[in-house]
Lab assay of single mutants.
Amino acid sequence: MLSDEDFKAVFGMTRSAFANLPLWKQQNLKKEKGLF
């Protein structure tokens, strides 16, 4: 599990902003970052 700081560094957004994205968009971002 990423820390909040690492999460923001990897995804360029906060966890709450990420959580507001549609599920497909979350999955695409995870795949792009190799976290899926």
Rank of each mutant, 00 (worst) to 15 (best):
W24R: 04
T14M: 03
M13T: 03
W24K: 06
G12L: 03
L23G: 07
L23Q: 10
A19V: 08
P22M: 03
A9K: 15
L29W: 03
V10D: 03
K31E: 12
F11T: 04
F18I: 02
G34I: 08
Q26E: 00
L21E: 03
G12Y: 01
S16I: 12
S16V: 12
K8C: 10
K31M: 10
L2N: 05
W24D: 08
R15G: 03
F36V: 12
L2S: 06
A9L: 13
F18V: 02
F36P: 11
K25P: 01
A19P: 01
K8F: 15
R15T: 04
L35D: 10
E32A: 12
L2M: 13
F7I: 02
S3L: 05
E32T: 10
L29E: 04
L21M: 06
K31H: 12
N28Q: 15
K30L: 15
E32S: 11
W24Y: 08
R15I: 06
F11M: 09
K33W: 04
A17V: 09
F11S: 01
L23K: 09
F18H: 01
E32G: 07
F36I: 13
N20V: 08
T14P: 05
A17T: 08
E5N: 09
D6M: 11
W24N: 06
K33F: 08
R15K: 15
G34R: 09
G12I: 00
A17W: 03
A9P: 02
K31Q: 11
N28E: 15
T14V: 03
F7V: 01
F18M: 03
L35Y: 15
M1F: 14
L21R: 00
N20G: 09
M1L: 13
F36M: 14
S16D: 14
W24V: 06
L21S: 02
F36R: 12
Q27V: 14
A9H: 11
K30M: 15
K25N: 10
Q27R: 13
R15L: 07
Q27N: 14
F18R: 00
F18Q: 00
F7R: 00
R15P: 09
N20L: 14
D4S: 04
E32Y: 07
M13Q: 02
K31R: 11
P22W: 02
F11E: 01
K31N: 09
K33R: 08
L23P: 11
G12S: 03
F11Q: 00
K25L: 15
L35H: 10
N20W: 04
V10N: 05
G34Q: 08
N28V: 14
K33G: 05
P22S: 04
S16K: 14
L21P: 00
L35F: 14
R15E: 07
V10A: 07
M13R: 01
W24A: 06
M1P: 12
K8T: 09
L29T: 03
D4Q: 04
W24M: 05
W24F: 06
V10L: 15
N20M: 13
M1C: 13
R15N: 03
L35Q: 13
L21D: 02
L2E: 07
L29M: 09
G34A: 06
R15H: 05
N28F: 13
L23H: 10
K33L: 13
K30S: 11
F7H: 01
N20P: 00
V10F: 12
F11L: 04
K31A: 12
M1T: 12
F7S: 00
M1Q: 12
F11N: 02
N20D: 14
L21G: 00
N28L: 15
N28W: 15
L2Y: 08
A9C: 09
D4K: 02
M1Y: 14
Q26M: 02
K30R: 13
E32H: 08
E32M: 10
K8E: 15
D4P: 05
G12N: 05
